[in-house]
Design a protein around this nucleic acid. Structure first.
Length: 284
DNA sequence: CTTGTACCCTGACCGC
DNA sequence: TGCGGTCAGGGTACAA
């Protein structure tokens, strides 16, 4: 479900309240949610008794460094969370009773009396424990963070140049750019007036620059609005985002383009819907 | 290397 | 009301 702005919103919601908290109890209701072949027991053993040493985001992953505390020993570990399509967090003294939060997944009981609840209807997301070396190996394969300073026109151009895949598909590939997903790929291409079907390597320098800028402004605007809540995505404790009212093309098939009044078209690329305006983004 | 496809899973919605 | 088909903010394994 969530893309960079949604995951970053969750990170901001959780970072301060979790910092330094000790994990007293771990309940795994759904073993599916423990990824990477780790058993429920060894997951609990690795996590219980440690403290949250911060909260970071890279691409669409959340990373909790777990600090050793008295009674907790063992190698340094990062707890990685992937929300995939329907992962949600709540932080409270009691399990939330919202109708969209009734699939208990994993609970982390904390030393301040609260519990961090993870709920995931479709169970596509989950947790895994990574050594720093393993994380480094994974991280190396991710493209640049689009909101970072290092994401320049030159770098973006070099990333796209050799690719023959449609630009829309390239934007979804986390090895090229990290954190862009299906909503913001369509939105950024609309903003940049670029045809989603154009082979990535055929964009000229002006198009590369427009697209880079469009990606940044779209993601930043969505982050400002705490993300896009269409159906499942919620920030922490059920809070909705509000960027859905700003969407230009995503989910607007048949509706008039906000710029030229022409119909928004839906097509399928790599098995996923793309929305665009043929008149504003056609041909070039 | 690149690219495309199948799959994981549940639930909401649509047409009959 | 029920039933089948389609679709959903993602990532990965595997084949070509």
């Amino acid at each position: 479900m969530p893309e960079l702005p949604e995951v970053e919103t969750i990170r901001r919601d959780l970072a301060a309240p979790l910092l330094g908290r000790r994990i007293e109890r771990v309940r795994v209701h759904e073993e599916d949610l423990i990824l990477g072949g780790t058993s429920r027991r060894s997951f609990q053993r690795a996590v219980r008794g440690r403290r949250f040493g911060g909260l970071e985001r890279r691409a669409k992953f959340l990373l909790f460094p777990l600090l050793a505390d008295d009674g907790a020993t063992g190698p340094e570990r990062l707890l990685r969370v992937q929300l995939r399509m329907t992962g949600q967090f709540a932080l409270d003294e009691e399990r939330p009773r919202a109708p969209d939060f009734r699939h208990p997944g994993v609970d982390f009981g904390l030393d301040d009396g609260r519990t961090l609840f993870y709920d995931d209807v479709r169970r596509l997301g989950g947790f895994d424990l990574l050594t720093p070396e393993r994380w480094t190996a994974i991280e190396r394969r991710l493209g640049p963070e689009p909101l970072s300073r290092g994401f320049t026109d030159g770098r973006f151009g070099r990333i796209l140049a050799p690719l023959r895949a449609p630009i829309k598909n390239a934007l979804l590939d986390q090895r090229r750019i990290a954190g862009v997903g299906n909503i913001y790929a369509s939105e950024a291409l609309f903003r940049a007036h670029i045809d989603p079907r154009a082979p990535a390597g055929t964009l000229d320098p002006a198009q590369v620059a427009r697209l880079r800028r469009a990606i940044r402004t779209t993601l930043a605007a969505a982050l400002e609005r705490a993300g896009t809540t269409i159906r499942d995505y919620r920030a922490v404790n059920g809070r909705s985002g509000s960027y859905q009212s700003e969407l230009d093309v995503y989910g607007r098939e048949g509706a008039p383009c906000r710029r030229c009044e022409g119909p928004i078209i839906r097509l399928v690329q790599a098995g996923r819907s793309t929305f665009f305006c043929e008149d504003c983004q056609g041909a070039r």
